[in-house]
Design a protein around this nucleic acid. Structure first.
Lengths: 346, 346
DNA sequence: CTGAAAGCGCTTACAG
DNA sequence: CTGAAAGCGCTTACAG
């Protein structure tokens, strides 16, 4: 006989060696379950791929749904990540629900309520590209067995949450080395939020490259703030006030770099003749600007695709090799970098 | 007592004077129910607003779902419309499902299949910002009673589909009049697809403004293509080949205008000193470019909001005053327009 | 075609 | 923290 037994909650309970009510509690996120029991049940849930009737119903129409949450869509960065997710979702026949938290951060719901809603609405996974979800939220999802993947988190996520990022440190080092090779010695860094992991990594890559060449790291050349273009324009203004102006700027995002470029134009400073400029992200904006921007390209679409791929793997109960994936960045040299004006080759 | 009885299938059965299994059959579309009985049950279902647990679940978490479909998200235009929809959706506690058809146009499904899926998945309405849905698709939704709103359709939608657009003709006229008032007489138009309604309207607004001033419309100054920046760059190249170069360009989208601007920079043509330039859309790109772009601003977020508002009204069964809504455009003068170089005021 | 009865699968209430 | 027992609401199988 050996017939495939129907996958009910009761079957999961038997498999896990607990009672049906206990499995029910785990699925519904009750907290009157011991950590051990919960873990045991979650393992079986993942392995068997059990779906509640609600979730099964969703599958009658053939598709599962993943929710993706952004702080904001007002950046080429966010849109390209989203495009990657959508592309892979279309290929895998997955629905995508989009949520943008905006400034208010959807703060009316507690982590528990939010997680419960996500389940109630039949979501099979979450991709998070926002700082609005803290450890408490991520934990709430985790406890209910909803796969979560965080993209380039501002803060390091709790240990067991999967995150996708890029080789920020290496990228920062490549950008800076490129400028050093061109002969620059006074190189400024205009970066994002101090607290952001990715900014820290880029900054330290920058410092590592300088130190490797014996170039001192100067505080006056390091300006942090946020990843948007106003910050680039303001940073540029500040740098131009310095007694010893830098001859090159490494901007930690393309948006920042475009702000620098706009301010340079206003002040009649030519790029790259008077000032070299490297961005980070490699969005289409870097290609389309004039001069086209030398930039550390992140595979943004691929990040989105990878995030969804890991969600699907977790849904299938596969064990991931690693909780953290870093995709490689690649320096693309375009028109915004050149040797410094008074540089003597040799 | 008169306590509100819980609305179960059994309650509906009692109300309708039939058994629970019979109601179950009606709900599940079985055909072993007499027409009379079915009608009786359907009446009670409608009056009481009974929802199956699946549907209740959706509503316990409070929310209905609307699907929005784009050709592509690779334009500031699309992203701003989307932001408007998301904003209003958050305020109205509606879920948003996002679909980007991409180049393949999701062509594997027929209109019927697509409509059926949309229903099966519990969607309450559709917002369409794409040319991938023809009259057949729109019709299929309509026949099933799913509200559809089309944003700025390339082709006029079937008579009973609601569409949201802007005053393209007036916008085209305003842009051109602005250039005429500055003293320009040789004004070129770089536009989108010939077939697109919104392009037609902008072009005719341009022509109307010229004619009102007695300026002849010259074919060599009218270039159509698509709304992206490469087209602007190519159009600019072509115009610079002309014996009688124009002194001003009206670009039918900001993306086109940015392409023009990039090409101008490459060819060392100064904007606005050597060439005036007006865009259309008024996205943040117009503000951030250097020089900042004079542009006909469309209330893109408001278009998104309006689209969702009309969906919700239709869902509530309200009768709309009009199947077509046009929001007003507004010319915002920035730095990319000036009198022609050899213009003598007087 | 209809519905009493049995059944299914999940959840709740509560004793230990 | 756990699970036997009772309960809930829908569905199925089948007798009439």
């Amino acid at each position: 006989m050996e017939q495939q037994e129907k996958l009910t909650l009761a079957a999961v309970a038997r498999e896990a060696g607990v009672s049906a009510p206990t499995v029910s509690k785990v699925i519904n996120g009750r907290d009157d379950v011991s950590a051990d029991t919960r873990a045991k049940v979650l393992t079986v849930l993942a392995r068997t791929g059990y779906k509640s009737p609600l979730q099964q119903r969703r599958n009658v129409s053939g598709r599962q749904a993943v929710e993706i949450v952004f702080d904001s869509l007002n950046s080429a960065y966010a849109v390209e990540v989203l495009n990657g997710v959508l592309e892979y979702a279309a290929e895998s026949d997955i629905e995508v629900l989009l949520n943008v938290t905006g400034k208010q951060g959807a703060s009316t719901l507690t982590a528990e309520q939010r997680a419960q809603r996500i389940i109630d609405e039949g979501r099979c996974g979450m991709i998070v590209v926002t700082s609005a979800f803290g450890a408490a939220h991520l934990d709430a999802f985790h406890r209910r067995g909803i796969p979560v993947v965080v993209i380039d988190p501002l803060n390091p996520p709790p240990g067991d949450v999967v995150s996708v990022g890029t080789t920020n440190w290496a990228g920062g080092k490549d950008a800076t080395s490129h400028l050093l090779e061109l002969g620059h010695r006074r190189i400024a860094y205009i970066g994002g939020p101090d607290a952001a992991e990715c900014n820290q990594a880029r900054l330290h890559g920058y410092m590592a490259a300088l130190r490797a060449e014996g170039v001192p790291v100067e505080d006056q050349y390091i300006i942090s703030g946020h990843f948007r273009s106003e910050h680039g324009a303001n940073g540029m203004k500040a740098l131009l006030q310095l007694e010893q102006r830098p001859t090159a700027i490494f901007a930690a995002s393309d948006s920042i770099a475009l702000g620098v470029l706009a301010e340079a134009r206003r002040q009649k400073i030519r790029v790259p003749e008077d000032m070299s400029l490297v961005g980070f992200d490699g969005t289409y904006q870097a290609e389309e600007s004039v001069p086209a921007l030398t930039s550390v390209t992140q595979p943004l679409q691929e990040m989105g695709r990878a995030a969804l791929r890991f969600i699907l793997r977790q849904m299938r109960g596969e064990v991931l090799d690693s909780r953290r994936v870093e995709l490689v960045t690649r320096l693309v040299v375009r028109e915004s970098t050149a040797p410094p004006r008074d540089y003597q080759r040799g």
